[in-house]
Amino acid sequence: MSTRIRRNTLADGREILLFQDADSPTAPLAEDDRPAEPRPTGGQLRFDLLTGEWVAVATHRQSRTHLPVAAECPLCPSAPGRPTEIPVADYDVVVFENRFPSLGPALGEVTADPRQHFAEAASESALTAPAHGRCEVVVFSSAHNGSFADLDPGRARTVIDAWANRTSELAAREGIEQVFVFENRGEEIGVTMNHPHGQIYAYPFVAPHTVITSARAVQHRRETGRPLMGDVLAFERSSGERMVLESAHFSAFVPFAARWPIEVHIVPHRQVLGINDLDDAERDDLARIYPEVLRRIDGLYSTPTPYIAAWHQAPVNCEDRSAEWMHLEITSPRRAENKLKFLAGSEAAMGAFVGDVSAEETAARLRVATLAHVDGRR
């Protein structure tokens, strides 16, 4: 299967890509006739000496669009007299450069650890760098209402192909060290636009969480000769107690040491480093199992559940490719119908999580959760 792609640029020079479903007719790509506005010059990276982490400062994001009504949604198709970010009358899946990026638009390399420069100069400039990188928006549908869970397998497959395309292209760009594909759903998570969409961050450094997990994966590989995620997958499949569902190519389970009230990992049975490594059969399978998992999560309560869906792909220049294993983590702070888990003292200050429900309890509930959607819920 080959998803068709059309490329263009918006009035201010940002790139836009339209991905078409397999059965979708080719439509002309309209031009963005909005007045060209200057793009943000980019933010700044500041290095935290205590943690060894880069922190992005992007003050221009304070003016970004916040929860617009449907008639003013910038992710809906353009209409006469109402141009949007997507200059077409209809579309399937669209990817474009974020108008308010946390990183970019300039690309370049960033020093992994500038402590030596700081020791020599002891100045602020030694701990700062341009916020190089790229931020993109991935719009799942031209319909303003709905979610990824509502996508049919054909549309979900188009989104997966878009993720794969962007992973490959962004990883090859100057200075990019990690490509992070994710979706935030729900205002409780911090979503500023309700139109179904996700995002992609192409970092000029390896994200802090990945630094930790990759180091453990490399250590495990050296000590056992096996990939760590492969052993985790075998452990969960053998137990079965926390398994939510399995397909030909993927397993979905609540991890043994789940931190969040709702947490599901979707892991491919074959070791791959990124979404772009999945073959056609795996992508088709993922297009079925992923929305089903989300529908089960939505089936737990009478209203849609907020979540973060995060693709953990291998760093571009990973230390040991044989140690890495891509997977998806879906997490939600919702611990009851009208209760959320907040990161308070232990979690926020110390990074030491305290679980509110057991992994086994959550998995059992998800196994029997209804898959039916009630139209009036959204």
Results as ranks from 00 to 15, higher is better:
Leu75Phe: 10
Asp32Met: 06
Gly81Ser: 13
Asn98Phe: 06
Arg221Met: 10
Ser251Ile: 02
Gly274Gln: 00
Gly42His: 02
Glu177Met: 07
Asp277Cys: 06
Pro196Cys: 06
Phe235Glu: 11
Ser239Cys: 06
Pro83Cys: 12
Ser251Asp: 15
Lys341Val: 04
Ile160His: 01
Asp277Gly: 05
Ala359His: 03
Ser63Thr: 07
Cys135Ala: 14
Cys73Leu: 03
Met229Pro: 01
Thr213Ser: 14
Val137Lys: 00
Ala143Tyr: 06
Phe180Asp: 15
Val218Gly: 03
Phe96Met: 03
Gln178His: 12
Glu53Thr: 12
Ala202Cys: 08
Leu170Asp: 02
Pro38Cys: 08
Pro315Ser: 11
His265Ser: 09
Ala349Arg: 10
Tyr91Thr: 03
Leu273Gly: 11
Thr224Asp: 07
Thr210Glu: 10
Val93Ile: 15
Ala30Thr: 13
Ala143Asn: 14
Pro25Cys: 14
Arg4His: 15
Leu286Ala: 13
Pro291Lys: 02
Ser141His: 05
Leu278Ser: 03
Val88Gln: 04
Val139Met: 03
Phe19Val: 10
Asn98Arg: 05
Ser2Cys: 15
Phe250Cys: 05
Pro25Asn: 09
Ser125Trp: 07
Val218Lys: 02
Val110His: 13
Arg157Gly: 05
Val138Thr: 07
Tyr91Ile: 06
Glu136Ala: 03
Ile86Leu: 12
Asp21Ala: 11
Phe205Cys: 13
Phe47Leu: 05
Glu120Pro: 07
Ile212Cys: 06
Ala363Ser: 15
Pro28Trp: 04
Pro105Val: 15
Glu241Gly: 15
Pro208Phe: 01
Glu15Ile: 06
His209Leu: 15
Thr192Arg: 09
Glu124Tyr: 13
Phe182Gln: 04
Val94Glu: 01
Arg295Gln: 14
Val181Ile: 14
Ala143Lys: 11
Ala234Leu: 13
Gly154Arg: 04
Gly299Ala: 05
Ala348Phe: 10
Val316Trp: 00
Ile160Tyr: 00
Phe235Asn: 11
Gly154Thr: 13
Gly186Asn: 11
